[in-house]
């Protein structure tokens, strides 16, 4: 367990492509002029003949990928999450998801951390959009190791995949032997006073919050959902029945994303006191990532505060 320096998921993704290239000769990479940002430039250098530059044209990128996939290739389209999910939403929906083709989408720069790109570049609707598409698998790795493993996993899955990688560096949570499975969440910390359910990069923040709560005698279970779709219903139901209070935390809008996915399961099968912690229904703004996360309560202190409030509400 435990590993070296902080590595960003975007870098881990770029490195994973290079590693996976020889074992996956049908894999290609399509780039709408963001490869030095999404880190597929590593693949451009190592495997130039399998790298397709399409210029600043996400819709065409997705269509070309669909045509290649219909003829036996396994193409990645690696682009900024916000433009992949919104500008080429229709192309993904019709040419990829409805056609049920093995196009692999790397939604790079997922959520807030976009290099201070502000409202237009933050991707806080992409999980909602992608998980609502039939046939689509949605993966949100928590660290570099899981990103690497999920890049390989994406290639093994027969249909379309949306792999959401964030830009910022993250502490290591998993070791090299971690093998994520679609539809299976990972319990990172045991506890029965309440459960904190996270997607992607929020896992390490939730762990820090649980640490702080433990000092107050509150034992919080922390469960990481690297697979948002399919979602681990059993883990959600167990959290509800064994903890009775659930907080979801996501690097995404509170509307339609991971928290909504959890609450769909809770409402249908095991209602309990639950709250969704995510960005409110506003466009984000320019500024430092940590400052903006903090403003919206999406840091360890904010998560811990939300937990206390939820527990207080239960006892009232």
């Amino acid at each position: 367990m435990k590993a070296a320096a902080m590595i960003s998921p975007r870098s881990a993704f770029g490195m994973a492509l290079v590693e996976l290239a020889d074992a996956n000769p049908r894999m290609l990479v399509i780039d709408p002029d963001v490869c030095t940002s999404t880190q597929t430039a590593l693949f451009r250098s190592s495997h130039p003949s399998r790298f397709i530059e399409v210029g600043i044209a996400e819709a065409n990128a997705v269509g070309i990928a669909a045509g290649l996939a219909a003829c036996g290739f396994v193409p990645w389209v690696s682009a900024f999450a916000v433009f992949l999910a919104t500008r080429s939403c229709d192309q993904i929906r019709v040419s990829v998801a409805h056609a049920d083709l093995p196009v692999k989408l790397n939604g790079s720069y997922g959520g807030l951390p976009t290099g201070r790109g502000g409202a237009t570049h933050s991707a806080i609707e992409d999980i909602a959009i992608m998980r609502s598409m039939p046939n689509m698998t949605v993966l949100t790795p928590a660290d570099a190791s899981e990103t690497r493993a999920m890049t390989a996993l994406s290639l093994r899955l027969p249909g379309p995949v949306y792999l959401r990688t964030v830009r910022c560096e993250l502490p290591a949570l998993f070791g090299e032997s971690h093998r994520p499975v679609p539809g299976v969440a990972v319990c990172l910390r045991p506890g029965t006073d309440l459960a904190i359910l996270t997607e992607g990069m929020m896992a390490f923040k939730a762990l820090a919050a649980a640490e702080a709560l433990a000092e107050e005698g509150i034992r919080a279970r922390v469960i990481h959902f690297g697979s948002v779709k399919p979602i681990d219903r059993a883990a959600i139901l167990a959290a509800s029945r064994e903890c009775g209070v659930v907080l979801t935390v996501e690097n995404h809008s509170r509307i339609g994303g991971f928290g909504s996915a959890v609450c769909e399961v809770l409402a249908e099968e095991a209602p309990c006191r639950a709250s969704i912690l995510g960005f409110p229904d506003v466009f984000l703004e320019s500024g430092d990532d940590d400052a903006i996360f903090g403003k919206h309560g999406l840091d360890a202190a904010g998560i811990a505060a939300a937990c206390r409030e939820l527990l207080g509400a239960r006892t009232r």
């Binding site: 669909a66 045509g67 040419s95």
Partner: peptide, 25 residues
């Protein structure tokens, strides 16, 4: 039917992907 369609404007990009596949195979 070689490709699912229905939203106008998408077919030519898909065709380019198929043309790429042909050239690569």
């Amino acid at each position: 039917v070689d490709m699912s369609t229905g939203s106008l404007g998408q077919g030519l990009s898909c065709g380019l992907g198929m043309a790429h596949a042909s050239r690569r195979s």
